[in-house]
Design a protein around this nucleic acid. Structure first.
Lengths: 168, 168
DNA sequence: CTTGACCCTGTAGCGACTACAGGGTGTGCA
DNA sequence: TGCACACCCTGTAGTCGCTACAGGGTCAAG
């Protein structure tokens, strides 16, 4: 099976498949004399596994770990449980942040219904006032915590006063 | 006020302030003879406005637009309302996707409680089976829709069969 | 006259792709 | 045989919103 067929079967973009191979998530397929990739059923399974995990919001690093656990049958599955627990925590936190955010946005939207000049727009006024006024203690929805880095988490918490503890 | 002081006052990183200036979100400040940036109260307000909008999950492009509307007092505020409505829709969609995702993850976590060998881990088995089995019609939480591109949206929808319409 | 805290520019990196340039291959049809 | 056209290859650069340096300059205090 050539890469195009694999792409069709999985619904994954051709370039993404090549990317996964480059990132060592997908094992390197056999090559024809002319360098074309040839995939078998096993690699179809591998890719589907990756895509399913991605659809559960896991990072490629997590998936790499999970695949390693999967390969090592003797490995204690506690690590797997931990990984899923962390994923749940992450997703829960994000969902909660978005819920709060939506409420704030709806409240903001409520400030202006009619169409009039920007100078009188309640939304704009509210935004400007909010920026000047009280610290907004909002729980960093998807802004500052950029894509779930982990190594600099405490570091960012120290610096990024705004979303963590409001303004000083 | 030098950049460090502005950073402290707003809780924004110094490098981020310079980044906003580079991106033309923040107007260029006056410079001392030695090239140091000097900020005034107006620019403090500007930055706070940006940070507040960011905390509401808006993209820098959206904030740029909003700032332009703010500057143009005659401008009809319908565009502002539209922008906020789109933002609400975006956030709502993401929140909903994350809620579903959390449910899926919790169900998955339920497959394995005890600690045993990975070969027998219910989570891993479930993941593998799910990958092989039914199409997972999940609503692209934060995976494929990368950071809210808009120009190639229909394009991506055509290609990315998995999360849009399950596997064919 | 040095120390050390601050400032500057420029560039590269993150994650998970996506897009394209510039080329090669393979099949079908006239 | 020639050619069109769909597919494949590699490599590089772009996306977004920062973050982290390297390698230097400035300025006030001791």
């Amino acid at each position: 099976m050539l890469i195009g067929e694999l792409a069709k079967k999985t619904g994954c973009d051709v370039e993404t498949i090549r990317y996964y191979e480059r990132e060592r998530l997908l094992s390197a397929p056999q090559r024809s004399a002319s360098g074309y990739r040839h995939y078998n059923a096993e690699q179809l399974g591998e890719l589907n596994f990756i895509l399913h995990c991605r659809s559960l919001g896991m990072s490629l690093a997590d998936i790499r770990n999970l695949a390693a656990f999967k390969a090592d049958h003797e490995h204690d599955c506690e690590d797997i449980n931990l990984l899923i627990d962390q994923q749940i925590a992450k997703v829960h936190q994000q969902a909660e942040a978005l819920r709060l955010l939506e409420q704030q946005l709806l409240a903001l939207r409520d400030k202006c219904h009619d169409s009039h000049a920007a100078a009188d727009c309640g939304i704009l006024q509210t935004l400007v006032e909010a920026a000047e006024g009280e610290p907004c203690v909002c729980h960093t929805p998807f802004g500052q915590d950029n894509h779930g880095h982990s190594h600099d988490h405490d570091h960012a918490a120290k610096k990024n006063g705004r979303t963590q503890k409001g303004r000083p």
